[in-house]
């Protein structure tokens, strides 16, 4: 019996998606509003985008955020992949329970506590707050997300492929580089993307660990938000949402294509 989508299900889906997307859509539409009054439409204009690009504070903050995100997500991907390897492959070593606990705890830890505790550490060891401290903080929580993503791929990985490479004379490093890494690469890439967006979006942890000279974009946005809605923030939000949307759609299309290609290869292999 083939069920068609009922009227009820269709309505629910439409309403659900409208609830998720309408607020963002309104925000984006009103970023092209002529008037400074954000909620009254006064004609189309791109002047707030111009204002935004002339605002040095926003540009500086964007530059800080981008540097922090690139560096921290890259270190987090390396550390997180190592941690995932340890979680999946190293069944027995001293303090394994503590290790896996420290991987999962930051995922559920409220950001205010992570931020507070890292700040107290930086002060205790006398490290001046700045870009470096934000990078350290972001790397720490992002590596846990990366290791969860990568370890879920490593679990399903067929170890005999690696053993074959070792038997054929590869060193363990070569076996990892030539066999394991290419297979888990999609998970590593999505781990990096996740770490990158987490760093880009983070307000709370960055607020605790940043210094006066290293304001990130979310901190800047948050402090302007407290003064109410402003068209510049709408314009900035529109740019950020668009970048993320394009990124996610492209990533989805690429992975869909990869899956399709793998399926055809497998089908041809069976012939």
């Amino acid at each position: 019996m083939k069920r068609n989508m009922s009227f009820f299900n269709m309505t629910t889906l439409t309403l659900g998606l409208a609830f998720l997307y309408l607020p963002m859509l309104l925000l984006m539409i009103y970023s092209f509003n002529e008037s400074r009054l954000v909620t009254v439409w006064a004609g189309f204009s791109t002047k707030w985008y111009g204002e935004l690009f002339r605002n040095q504070q926003f540009l500086d903050a964007a530059w800080v955020t981008l540097r922090v995100a690139v560096v921290s997500s890259t270190i987090a991907t390396v550390l997180g992949t190592m941690a995932a390897w340890v979680l999946v492959r190293e069944r027995r070593f001293l303090g394994r329970t503590l290790f896996s606990g420290m991987i999962y705890a930051p995922l559920v830890m409220p950001e205010v506590i992570t931020g507070l505790s890292l700040l107290l550490l930086f002060i205790a060891i006398g490290l001046d707050r700045g870009i470096l401290t934000i990078i350290l903080a972001h790397t720490t929580f992002a590596m846990c997300y990366v290791s969860v993503v990568v370890s879920s791929r490593l679990v399903t990985f067929d170890r005999s492929l690696e053993e074959a490479a070792l038997d054929l004379g590869c060193s363990p490093m070569q076996a990892f580089g030539f066999v394991t890494l290419p297979i888990i690469a999609p998970a590593v890439v999505s781990g990096w993307l996740l770490a990158f967006t987490l760093s880009l979006d983070d307000l709370v942890i960055a607020s605790f660990t940043s210094g006066p000279s290293s304001t990130t974009l979310p901190i800047k946005i948050f402090s302007s938000m407290r003064l109410g809605v402003s068209p510049e923030i709408n314009a900035l939000s529109t740019i950020l949402i668009s970048i993320v949307a394009v990124g996610v759609v492209v990533a989805a299309l690429v992975s869909k294509r990869q899956i399709a290609r793998r399926e055809t290869e497998e089908r041809e292999g069976q012939k």
Partner: peptide
């Protein structure tokens, strides 16, 4: 994937 801060801000308007 898009910033929670921005999505929450959208509700002010």
């Amino acid at each position: 994937w898009s910033s929670a801060l921005i999505r929450v801000y959208a509700w002010i308007g």
